[in-house]
Design a protein around this nucleic acid. Structure first.
Lengths: 349, 349
DNA sequence: GTGACAATCTGTAACGTTTCAGTATATAGA
DNA sequence: TCTATATACTGAAACGTTACAGATTGTCAC
């Protein structure tokens, strides 16, 4: 009666990582029972369940990921897809930490899937989907009509986008309200008496370009200010390019007396350009900039800043993907983060 | 004679991702033969090999990672272990890209394994080793006597450290020559007539603390300058802390007329502190700083900078780990990166 | 005492791969 | 013609897990 074991079970006592077989041997149960007991299946007796779980904890049993993955197809992997050339530096670091924070006490691992300038952004996505390498995907640099989102939606693989799309398709996203950022920025500049404003925004292909631009122009007409076009560059351009163009612009007859900038590094370049042209921040011109870490006010105290929290974005995106994987409705996994009011660390008076 | 198949093989034609079975069915060979043909095993006929590889390419066969991993234990994963609180921002981003660059055309995936302040740094390593989650590991924030390196060396898992250890144990590393950085920095400051120098270095527990400090003090005596102690803070401290301490220091009677700073963000804080005390960079005091992205000269043109290339570090570290996995001698996988000469973007004259 | 039924537990097969121990054929040597 | 050997291929087993389809109890109504 207590001789249930087959001869093979004895091997289970061999050293190495404990498996279900080890647990089965130790508890005198079958591997099936052990497997089910560990996941609280209903047809397992309460005492058995407790016993198995106790032993499992004691010997530090951890399910073999390859075994689970092979059998079930579940990878327990979230992939973060990043552009290795154009991504904002602090974005990469913070979003990774945000994601990590959320998946820390889940069985999920985070894998980073990079793609470079030259590649079709769809390439890494195709790879992930075709090889079934991840249960969920996070993408950034979202476009209004984003082939990646469409592709993943078609294949039914859970994902979340940093930034919204505009294709009439529903999927999880997290976005910063760049419309609100731009309007706030313009209003603030107007409050300082600035009347001719220039915008250094994201590149046209990204969705938040139009969000930012719309906020900018709407607020311009609201406050009765005018735009000095500055769309030969975007925050994707090099520091040197932006600096040079800014200096050119500031040497014109009609030059802006205010800037709105969508990224901190670009703001450094704008300020350098302004100073190259012999003008002074806070005197001839003011700049409102987004930043993701609290450093711009050290750069020039006259800078006006709005904070965008990428770590929070990472956490939200991770929560969204996990939610979708867990069966939640994609439409319920969308979030928008509001900008803080414009922060002036020290206004000259 | 052409009826080798068992009844089961017919299933192979079912849709879904192609497997070895699919290939075996299509080529009329056994799965073993296909498996061996794909990895250029010697006992496979030349024509068969070519035929199998052609078909495999045509239908886009990709080995199932879970299958390989389960059978062989090979994960094809490199894990980058990061501290989610203390890591330098640009370090995270650049090192990831550097690693990605190297593993791009290998079967390896990069997984990011985070740990937080509260945790024992050994925890994530133990997890990786115990669960066999990675074939190779990259760690940063290396200490002279680093329990993580010792642990991995004992278990025989390939790894590389960013920074050297000092335990008499041999393992791959990549390091920036911080001794050379500090000596160069001091010499340059001395060349500008600076005589009382302060060092804002890494925290004491990291190996490159003493490298930096030794370079600093050695060069001090070489040029006959003296040290103003500034070791109540390190580059790990918050911007606010560093700023405050710097301002305190600069208001003393004997204050430094030169700083050496090991990190760009810390340098921003130092400069802010200097200016808080009513002094001017380039006049009363000069600062030499390491930076990893080319932004400090925009901040204050008087800053003197030395570049440390983290992307290259990432690439080197990845190459080292892959090399070790591939059977190279750990001692042959060590590299040291020399600092550029101190760059002054524009010296006031 | 029998049958029905629920409550627990179990072995087998399969996921895709590689390794092991072969098998079949051809070639060569005697 | 026979044996030995090299060449080219093969099936079965195993890695650790879960799903499926039972199997073994005990309880209860009749």
């Amino acid at each position: 009666m207590d001789r249930h074991q087959t001869e093979k079970d004895d091997e289970a006592s061999a050293q190495g990582r404990p498996t279900l077989k080890t647990l089965a041997f130790m508890t005198g149960l079958g591997v099936t029972t052990v497997s089910r007991a560990l996941k609280d299946a209903p047809e397992i007796g309460a005492e058995t369940r407790r016993r198995v779980q106790l032993v499992a904890k004691q010997i530090g049993y951890r399910p073999n990921r390859a075994g689970v993955r092979l059998r079930t197809g579940k990878t327990n992997v979230i992939s973060l897809v990043l552009n290795t050339e154009r991504e904002i530096m602090s974005f990469v670091s913070d979003i990774i930490y945000g994601v990590s924070e959320v998946i820390a006490d889940t069985p999920y691992h985070l894998i980073v899937t990079p793609y470079s300038r030259s590649q079709d952004p769809l390439d890494p996505i195709r790879y992930l989907v075709e090889t079934g390498s991840a249960d969920g995907v996070i993408i950034s640099r979202t476009q209004p009509n984003d082939p990646r989102a469409r592709y993943m939606l078609e294949r039914g693989i859970p994902f979340a986008t940093h930034g919204r799309t505009d294709m009439g398709l529903i999927h999880p996203y997290h976005d910063f309200d760049n419309y609100a950022f731009a309007t706030e920025a313009v209003r603030h500049l107007a409050g300082l008496g600035r009347r001719r404003l220039a915008l250094l925004g994201p590149p046209v292909e990204l969705t938040y370009h139009s969000h930012t631009l719309n906020g900018f122009t709407d607020a311009l007409s609201e406050v009765g200010a005018s735009e000095i076009p500055f769309n030969t560059v975007s925050i994707d351009h090099s520091i040197e390019q932006i600096r040079m163009r800014t200096a050119q612009l500031m040497r014109r007859d009609v030059r802006p007396d205010g800037f709105v900038s969508s990224a901190a590094a670009a703001t450094l370049a704008i300020v350098a350009g302004i100073e190259d042209a012999g003008l002074k921040l806070g005197r001839e011109v003011d700049v409102v900039s987004k930043q993701s870490s609290d450093l711009l006010h050290l750069f020039r105290r006259e800078l006006l800043v709005v904070n965008e929290n990428f770590r929070l974005a990472g956490a939200e995106l991770a929560r969204s993907v996990l939610g979708w994987i867990g069966g939640a409705a994609p439409g319920s996994l969308q979030s928008l983060s509001m900008p803080t009011e414009v922060l002036a660390y020290r206004r000259p008076d």
